[in-house]
Amino acid sequence: MIEIPLRRSGYGTVRLAESRLWETYGSIGLLSTGRGLAPWPYARWDRAARRSLTRADVTVPGWLVHLHRARGGVLPSFLLVVPCPTRGDLAADLAALAAVPAARVREELEQWFPQGIPAEVRPLYADPPTRLAELCDVLPRYRRAALAPYEASLRVAAEEDILLRARILATQGPERLLGSLRGLRLSRHGDVLRLHGAGTPGRTAVADVSRLVLVPLVFGRGAPYAATAPDGTTAVAYRAEGAAVLLGETRPPGRRDTGAEPGPGDRLEILLGRSRAGVVRGLVAPTTTSDLAAALGLAPSTVSEHLAALVAAGVVRRRREGVRVLYELDGPGVALLRHMDDRRRVNAPDT
């Protein structure tokens, strides 16, 4: 838990920034903790990423996998370079990561594992510079194998989320902004803002926050990352909207799925047609028309027609959030997908 005093500095200067490094960690955490059973909307990406990583012969260090599993997705702050709001450069972040002092690495690991360093993490504890250098070599190769097909979609999702949060910040203030963030547990006790589930074990008090940086992550499910720089800049991750960009198979630019013929034995596609079935599957997580069209490889006008029919039928509902209109499955839509889609188990959408 991280504690931020509000009396002295308020929230500091609130900014929003992308971080390719943090997003990469988030995706690794999903692979590490999901163990091949990733939830919607990550399931198809999970399968494709595992195949691609095997073909590319990319292996994530075992100590990083263990750190993800040890505390439910939280990572030690020495791995989390605080993002710069004006730069989302992975190479610069990796250079800063490689320069982390060995003493800091060992100190944080001892805080994490007061009963003794686990065998899986001992290589990192014994030789931090070498292990961090190896990690900096692996991460770009991992990203090319697992995330490159989704690079443009991930960036669009992060940028759209930043625009949405910036509007909330400008019109309603920082407290309303913090209250709107998914995957971030906050509480306020007097003049102290507490970020639960983030940081090192126990309580970490930040003496003076010069800047609070909020980092949207498409892979933010179960990734409560937080870190503080020496100048007082504190960065905290939250779950971005638009994770539906990971739904469906990626297609080469220019190719469209006409949706004319249902897949063999696919009951949902036989009932609705391939395109409309894809729209229903894509709405387990709230998303916009444009995000869904990009994810499915369909024209926005086609997706709009399907959505209008599904809303009229009571299968889908829509709601406005800031400047965006979000669509998601309503109760009958969840029931339809649960009973007609043999390929996955579907839970009620997160509202």
Rank of each mutant, 00 (worst) to 15 (best):
A119D: 10
P262G: 05
W45I: 02
A243C: 14
T258I: 11
E134T: 08
D57V: 09
E134F: 06
A240H: 05
R221S: 13
L298D: 05
L169H: 09
T86E: 06
D231M: 14
L139V: 09
A348M: 03
V105W: 13
L67M: 09
I162N: 03
A198D: 10
P41I: 07
G232I: 11
A285F: 07
A48T: 15
E328S: 02
A237R: 05
S9E: 14
V58Q: 03
R7K: 14
S210I: 06
L181C: 09
S52P: 14
L169S: 06
V156Y: 07
W63S: 05
P216V: 01
V105F: 08
P140L: 04
W112C: 08
V334M: 00
G116C: 10
F78E: 03
V100K: 08
R51G: 13
D89V: 01
G265A: 06
P262T: 03
L16R: 02
T54V: 14
D137Y: 14
L30D: 04
V121G: 13
I117Q: 09
W63T: 08
A103K: 10
R165G: 08
A48D: 11
E261Y: 12
G265F: 01
P76C: 06
S27I: 02
R267P: 02
Y150T: 12
A243L: 12
V215Y: 04
A103Y: 12
T54N: 13
V311G: 04
V14Y: 03
R256A: 10
L298K: 11
A152W: 11
C136F: 06
V60P: 04
G333H: 00
L247H: 14
R239A: 15
F78N: 05
V138P: 07
Y11P: 07
T13C: 06
R239K: 15
V100T: 11
T250L: 14
F113I: 10
V209F: 03
R122Q: 12
S9D: 15
Y142I: 07
A308L: 10
G248V: 07
L124V: 03
Y327K: 08
Y42H: 10
L37H: 12
A38R: 11
S301M: 07
G222L: 04
A99I: 03
P129N: 02
G190H: 14
C136V: 09
V279H: 03
L169F: 06
A152Q: 13
R20A: 10
R144H: 04
P262L: 06
T288G: 09
A294F: 09
I2Q: 12
R344D: 00
G232M: 10
A70W: 13
N347G: 13
G278W: 01
Y150L: 12
V245F: 01
A240M: 07
A48N: 11
Y42F: 15
T302F: 04
R338D: 05
G248F: 06
R267D: 04
A237S: 13
V316K: 01
A99S: 06
R71C: 12
A295Q: 02
T59I: 05
L310D: 01
A103F: 12
A157G: 10
D208I: 10
R324I: 00
D46W: 00
T289V: 15
